[in-house]
Design a protein around this nucleic acid. Structure first.
Lengths: 318, 318
DNA sequence: GCGCTGGACGTTAACGTTAACAAGAGCTCC
DNA sequence: GGAGCTCTTGTTAACGTTAACGTCCAGCGC
């Protein structure tokens, strides 16, 4: 029908006819049925997004960025959130996704999980991965340059005169945690310093506190780099309880720059990640694929930025 | 076809036939096309969720709860996030939603916005509202008992001997902020105390800090109730910078019990809200409506809980 | 044996849209 | 003036599923 042509902005409709159609549409409050459209075209304007523990600030913000950008681009977002790795196999989740004729998929699970799930997508489905190092680059990846950020954090502490830097790391199965840890170790080694054994946390302030209590038992700790701001907060509390001053006795750097970090006591030196931007970028890449502008393969990188506040200072103690 | 009957678990299929169908389904990897199903039945297994600034801990967690419960119930979730009131009119968003033959809608926008949007849903669409006081109870509402929580917080401070309690309130257009403020004022009045003018924040730590700096100029402030934990964090920093001790000079209570609150310095006394649970409850109510178990109208309440930590103590100063 | 009943399964049409083709009007060009 | 072209609009069929009805056959009672 001519209505379809008008609404899809196909050429070959007289201006006067278009006007009449639009008038009727407005009068009747007509909205095209997206199901019928998806059925016949085989493609919907719905994007699948798989997120991982979206209660956390980073994932939540990325999701937010994706959703906002999707709406601007005329797409709709269907979200699946995973809480833990074991919970749902990649195969199962992907098969569920595939039966919904989605226009494309964003894997925003900053987790090894994503790498395992990727092969189960039906061939040809546009896909973008956020924040994971996929070995075989079978999909475009948007990542934040974790290495660069962790390097800046570590170098900042070294430049203040600290002999070495302790690290409270994130969970082993999160690639971003791995990247931060590796970069921290490399930076120390390159500077000719010995990297102490990292302390393993799980992103929560609680785990940061627990590892912080282990740190204060040693007398030689003057600089700590925590893999995220929440863990840094926990470390901060442990240091305080042990009567240590920050940054007088110990300097501390976090990662993420959550909105609260500037209001910690002392305000936290940290590495800002633009999660929002990563989400928007991922969406742009996906839409390019869907609308035929071609697959821009490889890695798109968002640069993090060291934000120096009051939790770091020159090495004094020791 | 018989396949449809088998997959929808309709009666009247011989056991042997059902087995053959299931075998074929497994072998071929057949998945029913949800678009086609939705087209013919007029109802999908997709739920629309409208969220409001899901970067914040509360909304993000509620969304998470909804999504998890939805998946358990065999539904899929399509998310729309709003950033600010003006951004999208209720009418526009609702009309977009309506053209997708959704099974139901959850308005998780803890905001006056939801009240305005409700009338634009097409009659008969199952709907549940989270965290808003809808005047005319045209929909079931899941709310957290803001009043009870704020009352507990205020009474706790009074019981410690504080003359009165100052309040750093949330934005005026959030009903939950209004409820907390009203309950705080009522509790003070009932106790025969004078309620000082509330200081208005916007949920951020930054706004808490700004209002905190105004508070420290006065010499008569011994107890502060902040409408959320982030603002409490900002207040904490302002107090610290002014050389005041918490809880020695000033007692401070927050609201929400974000996971970080227990690791503030000092650990924050606050009111725990179970956002997760609210989300799950909303989903249950919605599924009941959809599957014909009837509309349970009225208010479903999740009780908040005062968590006493180290940021409150007996009134000493003054 | 006949008709009736009910269980198991097949057939038809419809959901609302779009792709592909058909048709008609008006125009150009020789 | 008619063949052929273009520009616009209409018609047909198809996407994959389900509701409603139709058919077939076995079993039963008389």
């Amino acid at each position: 029908m001519t209505v379809s042509r008008v609404l899809n902005e196909h050429a070959g409709v007289k201006a006067s006819t278009r006007a009449r159609v639009l008038a009727a549409v407005a009068e009747l409050g007509y909205r095209p049925n997206s199901m019928a459209r998806a059925l016949v075209t085989g493609r919907s304007r719905v994007l699948g997004v798989v997120g991982f523990d979206t209660r956390l600030y980073g994932p939540a913000t990325t999701l937010f960025g994706i959703e906002q950008a999707a709406r601007d681009a005329g797409y709709t977002v269907r979200v699946t959130t995973l809480e833990s790795t074991g919970q749902n196999s990649g195969e199962e989740v992907m098969r569920d996704l595939m039966s919904e004729s989605l226009a494309g998929v964003i894997l925003a699970a900053p987790h090894d999980w994503a790498a395992g799930a990727l092969p189960h997508l039906t061939k040809g489905t546009p896909v973008v991965v956020v924040d994971v190092d996929i070995e075989q680059e079978s999909a475009p990846v948007v990542g934040i340059a974790q290495h660069a950020g962790a390097r800046q954090a570590t170098e900042h502490l070294l430049s203040l005169g600290h002999r070495t830097v302790w690290h409270v790391a994130g969970p082993v199965d999160w690639p971003s945690a791995q990247a931060r840890e590796t970069a921290w170790r490399t930076t120390l080694t390159e500077a000719g310093r010995k990297a102490p054994a990292p302390l393993r946390g799980d992103w929560t302030a609680r785990s940061g506190y627990e590892q912080g209590r282990r740190l204060v038992r040693r007398k030689d700790v003057t600089a700590v780099f925590a893999a995220n701001d929440q863990m840094a907060l926990g470390v901060l509390l442990a240091l305080r309880e042990a009567g240590l001053d920050v940054p007088g006795d110990v300097s501390l750097v976090g990662f993420d720059d959550i909105p609260e970090a500037a209001y910690f006591w002392p305000p936290l030196t940290t590495v800002r990640q633009d999660f929002d931007e990563a989400g928007r970028l991922a969406l742009d890449l996906l839409v390019d694929q869907i609308e035929g502008a071609g697959v821009r393969d490889g890695l798109t990188v968002v640069e993090p930025e060291l934000v120096v506040r009051a939790s770091t200072g020159p090495a004094a103690r020791n």
